[in-house]
Design a binder for these strands. Structure first.
Lengths: 189, 189
DNA sequence: TGTTTACACTAGCGCTTGCTTGGTTATGCT
DNA sequence: AGCATAACCAAGCAAGCGCTAGTGTAAACA
């Protein structure tokens, strides 16, 4: 019941369906068909439908966390570079792992109590990373305001992009990140 | 089938249930019970379940639009005052009409094609208002960046507040609006 | 060679869903 | 008084839901 390569693949397919139809409207039969098996076979890989949702969100969040940490290690250590790296990493995960993140954003409330508690820790770790980077930028005088408030405003702006951002359009995540950081930092430095 | 006072009341109750349970998990029987009638009677007021969702979102959006327009008329005509008035109005609607807005944010995709088309116009009108105010602030040199991009970033930051903002907490919408505007405007003016 | 393990199948149980039907009661106008 | 209309109810249909039980099969291991 733990994670096999097959389960990974199924989780990816499930994420896609959850985005298209929403969690509640996605039936186990639809999931099974998309996976090329019968509905009964699905419960060999997942205990119940809830566990599929949990798996989708967990993988998405874990990827986001990993990518953010890599980005921080790879970039320069100036507060501005770190801020930019975080924003860019966030936007890139939002694209490469789009389905999982849309599910995490829109179907969070369908999680039962224990799944939610488990995943909350992951999400909190990610937000703590943001607060750390934002805090450093504040101390350096790069931006101004309250650490938690700024973190939340920025995360909101970034997450909202899934509503309007078109990957086929002219802007890259790199540019988008730069424009966001430019918006909250004074023009003359 | 059009809007009676009773229908208004029912719409308000529906919004509350949709927030608690989500649209798909809210059954017509739950709706009816909350309204103090039997499930069959529900279809005297609404053609089908979809129409209830549509009514909830329509009223929320129309209120937001009205309140934003009032706020703009009531405030000073400087770009900064107008920006602040819009942010504050948005946060206040998000509070007073919280249920309807949460539904609009999270259950938008459950709308069928025609409802969505109808409501898109309302939403576009609201966003156009923001773009106008942001555009003026840009021309006045108050903020910098792209008109559409800034509008979307700001709207994202504001809408995200429904995830974390606690009305019982120490911050008022007024303060929150001020802090957001401060974040995107250079400190020295 | 015999046994285990992983994965899939068929069949269907018990329950809930949105919505309809056909009829009853309350309100208010003429 | 007579009538129209709005609001409601009890009962239930057809479809679909998540999930279970029991079985088959092919590869991996002893």
């Amino acid at each position: 019941m733990n994670d096999s390569p097959r389960r990974r693949e199924l989780t990816r397919l499930a994420a896609q369906l959850f985005v298209q139809e929403g969690f509640d409207r996605t039936t186990v039969r639809m999931l099974a068909q998309e996976m090329g098996i019968k509905s009964g076979s699905l419960f060999h890989h997942f205990r119940d439908k809830q566990e599929i949702l949990c798996a989708v969100i967990e993988e998405g969040t874990q990827n986001a966390l990993a990518i953010a940490r890599e980005a921080l290690e790879a970039c320069a250590s100036t507060p501005e570079a770190r801020l930019h790296a975080m924003a860019r990493a966030h936007l890139e995960t939002l694209l490469t792992d789009r389905n999982a993140h849309v599910v995490a954003l829109y179907e969070w409330r369908r999680l039962d109590a224990e799944s939610r508690a488990h995943l909350s820790h992951l999400r909190d770790a990610y937000e703590a990373l943001w607060q750390e980077v934002v805090g450093d930028a504040l101390e350096a005088g790069l931006i101004h305001g309250d650490k938690f408030l700024v973190s939340r405003f920025v995360l909101g702006a970034l997450n909202w992009t899934v509503r309007w951002y078109d990957p086929e359009g002219s802007r890259t995540p790199e540019e988008l990140a730069r424009e966001l950081i430019a918006m909250i930092t004074p023009p003359a430095r």
